[in-house]
């Protein structure tokens, strides 16, 4: 899917036919095109190996695209990289706090790399650590800190910088639920004057935080839009996930979807969902039924609906 929206202001992120081919025939990105306002939070979701990190690294000027182009605030990520780097900052997916540095030392050093003097770096660094609630660990060596705090220190470093555009590649991976919720709160405050491009495995995170969501699968941008726009793609407002290994009948109104792992999902109308789930429960089938969530949309987008006539031999009466 090539999602082109009509945003013509300067604060935009535009990708046109972006490709990344690591080896001949081995594509990490395939003709990714998008245009979004570079404000608020954009969440890119996708499975492992979908190409999320590759896209982040290209946009954050760390990796050359094979072909295509991308601009942020009108600056090309290849041609204008030096100028663009003044206004972007990135926390890579596998970035770690160095064990022999304290959070204060790491954050200040990062700000020195961005050209800040000592006094300003110290002020901004400590303010960022305070905002993330980890000020009390400022002078503790990294090796003595938990994984969650280490992750927050890296986010604090880019937060403290002057960068308006922040790339956070899976920033909450490894955080406990409370720390994750705290970081979400911080990101929600940050988005008022920043553009945050984040990737995540946690669909709930994208649902809670993002103004715009992109779904990447196998290097292709499969869908993009606000949560409401994505919901609109599915046409049906209810989802039933079949948890038991059993055959199911296709709904009269709706679609039956099956993934590579064999899990089945039905998206349908509310009445039909009630009818089917009642029938399935009576037949002893384990299931979960809910209004359509991002989780359901994600499964819907990356799995293909079963066409009429497919998979008939799997179906049983229930």
């Amino acid at each position: 899917m090539n999602a082109i929206y009509d945003h013509v202001g300067m604060e935009t992120l535009i990708c046109k036919g972006l490709n990344k081919e690591y080896e001949p025939g081995k594509y990490a990105l395939r003709s990714v095109s998008l245009s979004i306002p570079a404000s608020g939070i954009f969440a890119l979701i996708g499975r492992n190996g979908a190409g999320k990190t590759t896209l982040v690294r290209i946009l954050a000027t760390q990796l050359m695209p094979t072909s295509g182009s991308a601009t942020i605030d009108g600056m090309d990520v290849v041609r204008d990289a030096d100028r663009l780097r003044e206004s972007i900052a990135c926390v890579p997916q596998e970035a770690r706090l160095i064990g022999w540095l304290t959070p204060r030392q790491l954050v200040m050093s990062y700000l020195y790399w961005r050209g800040f003097g000592k006094a300003e770096a110290d002020d901004r660094g400590m303010a960022a650590l305070r905002k993330l609630g980890i000020e009390r660990f400022a002078n503790t060596l990294g090796r003595a800190l938990s994984g969650g705090i280490k992750r927050k220190v890296l986010v604090a470093a880019v937060m403290a910088s002057e960068a308006r555009v922040l790339f956070l590649d899976e920033p909450t991976t490894g955080l406990d639920p409370i720390s994750r919720a705290e970081l979400w709160g911080t990101l929600q405050k940050l988005k008022k004057d920043h553009f945050i491009f984040l990737t995540t495995h946690y669909l709930e995170e994208a649902e809670r935080l993002a103004d715009t969501i992109g779904i990447l699968d196998n290097g292709r941008l499969m869908a993009m839009g606000t949560l409401e726009e994505l919901r609109g793609m599915v046409r049906y407002p209810y989802s039933i996930k079949i948890l038991s290994k059993t055959g199911v009948e296709k709904p009269k109104h709706g679609e039956l979807i099956v993934g590579a792992d064999g899990q089945k999902q039905i998206v349908t109308t509310e009445d039909e969902a009630n009818r089917i789930s009642t029938k399935l429960i009576r037949a002893g089938v384990r299931l979960s039924m809910s209004p359509l969530s991002l989780d359901d949309i994600f499964y819907y987008v990356v799995r293909k609906p079963i066409e009429a006539g497919d998979n008939n031999d799997e179906e049983e009466s229930w």
């Binding site: 954050a60 780097r85 972007i88 990135c90 890579p92 790399w113 910088s161």
Partner: peptide
């Protein structure tokens, strides 16, 4: 070590510091 194990160099790449200064 800083590039491969800590990804620190990537953070510096996406900053105003260039290769020569680093």
């Amino acid at each position: 070590h800083l590039k491969n194990d800590f990804k620190l160099q990537d953070m510096v790449v996406s900053s105003p510091t260039g290769a020569a200064v680093y």
